[in-house]
């Protein structure tokens, strides 16, 4: 599961959807692997516009990376040299960083989801199913 995907998923329990603490999930005991992917700066620029930056910073922290700026990088342009380094770093973090094993915990209800073989499992036990 790519780091990027952590920005698109939340607790599957319906009653958690309205809670502000259910996103992002908290990532614990994660095993990371870097997997080379095509670098497409335009993709990163446009993806960045829609991402919840606070959640990115939070998940990065969970995974031991405290180097991200508190505010979303702005006005990135793939042809500007100072943007290029930032875009490269974001590509490495968002697209190339894979969580292969680990736990995701909902900060609202405490339910634990597991990631195995890079596949996050959001199936709920029958008593929690929506």
């Amino acid at each position: 599961m790519k780091f990027l995907t952590t920005n698109f998923v939340q607790c599957a329990v319906k009653s958690c959807h309205s809670s502000l603490t259910s996103f992002p999930l908290q990532y614990e005991e994660c095993q990371l692997v870097q997997q080379e992917q095509d670098y497409n700066p335009e993709f990163i620029v446009h993806m960045l516009e829609r991402l919840d930056w606070n959640a990115i910073v939070q998940v990065a922290k969970d995974l031991g990376n405290e180097s991200l700026p508190a505010n979303k990088p702005e006005d990135l342009d793939p042809i500007m040299e100072d943007s290029q380094a930032v875009l490269r770093d974001l590509h490495t973090l968002l697209v190339e960083t894979q969580i292969v094993e680990g736990k995701m915990v909902c900060k609202n209800c405490g339910h634990i989801y597991y990631i195995k073989n890079s596949i996050p499992n959001f199936l709920l036990p029958p008593h929690l199913a929506n």
């Binding site: 599961m1 790519k2 990027l4 995907t5 920005n7 698109f8 998923v9 939340q10 607790c11 599957a12 319906k14 959807h17 996103f23 080379e36 992917q37 095509d38 993709f43 697209v95 989801y113 890079s118 596949i119 996050p120 499992n121 959001f122 199936l123 709920l124 199913a129 929506n130």
Partner: peptide, 22 residues
Amino acid sequence: ENETLRLDAAQMNLTDAIRPKA
């Protein structure tokens, strides 16, 4: 080699764990 696909697979019922309006 020159064209990797950005694709993740999640075990999930329908879209239960995907953020609304995403």
